[in-house]
Amino acid sequence: MNDAPLAVVLAENWNYLVVITLMMSGLFIVISRSNLVKKLVGLSIFQTSVFLFYISVGKVAGGTAPIITGDPDTLYSNPLPHVLILTAIVVGVATTALGLALVLRVHAAFGSIEEDEVLAMKAEDGLPLLRRVAGGEDGE
C-alpha cells in the first residue's frame, strides 16, 4: 500500500468498502435468519451490492453518462458494466419471483415459512413435499 493518509485511502476505496459491507450483511441475513422471506430480501441485498460494485468499476472521473453528445472532448463512463448490470437486474427479479413462488409452495405444504420448523416437520414424518397439504397432516 502507498503512504497516502488514511482519509484519502478511505475516500478512494469507499465504494468498495461499502459494497463489501453490504454484501457481507446480505450473506449474514441469508445464513443466520430462518424466515424464508427475510432470506430472499438478504439475497437481493447481496445481489444489489454486486451491481454497485460493477457500476463503481465502470465510473470514469470527470466522465458523463455514455450517450454520445457529438462533442469530441467529452469523457464518457464505461458502458459495458452498465449493459451487464441491466441484464443482471432483470434476471435478479426473475429469480426473486421464482424464490417467492417456492416460499408460497412451502407455506402451502407446511403451514410455516420458518426454515427450522419446516426441517423439524420433515424430519418427523419424512413425507415428500408433493403429498403435503398444510393443516391436513398436522391435525392427525
Binding site: 444489489t48 451491481f51 457500476i55 463503481s56 465502470g58 465510473k59 470514469v60 466522465g63 458523463t64 453518462a65 455514455p66 450517450i67 464518457y76 463512463s77 458494466p81 452498465h82 448490470i85 441491466l86 437486474i89 432483470v90
Partner: peptide, 10 residues
C-alpha cells in the same frame, strides 16, 4: 455514477 439506464431499470 453515470449509469442512467441502470438507474431507471433499478
Amino acid at each position: 455514477l453515470d449509469a442512467v439506464d441502470v438507474a431507471f431499470t433499478e
